[in-house]
Design a protein around this nucleic acid. Structure first.
Lengths: 237, 237
DNA sequence: CGCTAATTTGAGTGACTTCAAGCACAGTGG
DNA sequence: CCACTGTGCTTGAAGTCACTCAAATTAGCG
């Protein structure tokens, strides 16, 4: 049977070892499959804006979404990415607040949408699902706290090195070790929290120091240890 | 009946309109009261260290706790405070990770300790409690994200103004409007994410501009609108 | 249609400015 | 008396501005 691009194989999402859905019963899964709706979203589409009220959350079947906040002068601050098996938008739905970020597609994506009602129904009837969700939120909170420390205390150079390592851990790599995800210099600067020019200059320096290899927007991490050193990164994070 | 300092009146915590315990049944409350243990903690005591595994979480009956991470050079970054009715430590317990912050008493405190087991029991049997907890984590995550944006894009001056407003909203005020909480200049700098000297200079400037009044460590916010302007703070946050 | 022309977008560089960190030291007060 | 506050001075990291160049999109039009 052929699967159309907008009817993703959700079993992968449901079964994945780190999936929040892994503790759902057969019935719950069937109902979820029936209730959810899938959409195909093209690059640079915006799923929702910061400040919007959203009535459901999204599960990424394929593609990459960037979640960012916008500062006073219009500069973005990327908070995180969501890719295959990740969910996003759940924070606002659970807390009952407006979206605190804008969600924008950066690689063509297939998304499943699950309504707020359905989410709360699951939370109320399946404690293991609840716990799974809580753990997700708490892990994300831990990462946010880590990021606050970094941005407050580390130099731009250190942060860029750290971000490159993070990207390497988070996203798939081409066979030759190049990052599959391609970001503009500006987007990189919006993760690191600096000016675009600074990223450009530092990337060249990193290349000169043989820490990375650059080919347009394609970045390959050559020297992990070296990057860890310049980034003052100690554990696996 | 006289209440000893280390046997706090937990009803306040249980009943408070924003308490995560407000949806507990009579039986659950009784059991909680029986299971929990209370301690009196003196100023500058450390409850737990970043990296510790903790087997329960804390509810603040009185006093103030600061939660901070420590940077490479030993400088603290204050992530948040916990005061009356607030809970802390729950992030690590729920996510099953090590503590991501150190918890230190800054005003003598009475704390209730609730074990991890008991927490998970409640989560598994009371969906409303679960939801309450999730919402707490999600709200905190929203605040962390907001803070990331601020620290990444705002100047030290803006951030200090914003922090002062935040302190005013968060903590009790003396009758004359002075902040009840007293922080050293260094602690302020550890919230804002800057050097102590910078805070000292900026506080003097703010005083000169009649935005605040300073008396040693006692700070009184005089001109809220003015601080909002210098801090580029728009909504109630 | 297809092939330039025109516009936009992003990468990169150099010069300049400035914010804020760092250092040294002097009070000061609990 | 020691921790904290406060001040002056210096320095450097990083932001800003102004511009070039290349590539990619879009528009124009015979």
């Amino acid at each position: 049977m052929k699967i159309a691009p907008n009817t993703p194989n959700c079993n992968i999402c449901l079964e994945a070892p780190n999936s929040i859905f892994r503790h759902l019963s057969k019935e719950e899964r069937d109902e979820l499959m029936f209730e959810k709706s899938c959409t195909f979203q093209r690059r640079s589409n915006i799923i929702y804006h910061e400040g919007n009220r959203i009535n459901g959350f999204y599960c990424v079947s394929s593609g990459v979404i960037k979640l960012y906040k916008t500062g006073i002068d219009g500069k973005e601050q990327i908070i995180r990415f969501a890719q295959k098996n990740d969910i996003f938008g759940y924070r606002s739905v659970l807390s009952g607040e407006m979206a605190c970020t804008t969600a924008k597609v950066i690689t063509d994506a297939t998304l499943c949408y699950i309504s707020s009602n359905h989410l709360f129904k699951l939370v109320k009837t399946n404690p293991n699902f609840s716990i799974e969700l809580m753990q997700l939120a708490c892990r994300e909170l831990g990462e946010a706290n880590k990021f606050i420390l970094d941005i407050a205390q580390k130099s731009v150079r250190e942060r860029l090195a750290e971000v490159l390592l993070l990207l390497r851990e988070t996203f798939d790599l081409e066979p030759d070790g190049t990052l599959k995800i391609t970001l503009t210099r500006e987007e990189l600067s919006n993760i690191v929290g600096t000016a675009t020019e600074s990223v450009i200059r530092l990337l060249s320096e990193f290349k000169q120091d043989n820490l990375i290899d650059i080919n347009g927007r394609k970045i390959r991490i050559i020297n992990i240890k070296g990057l860890q050193k310049t980034g003052n990164v100690y554990d696996g994070h």
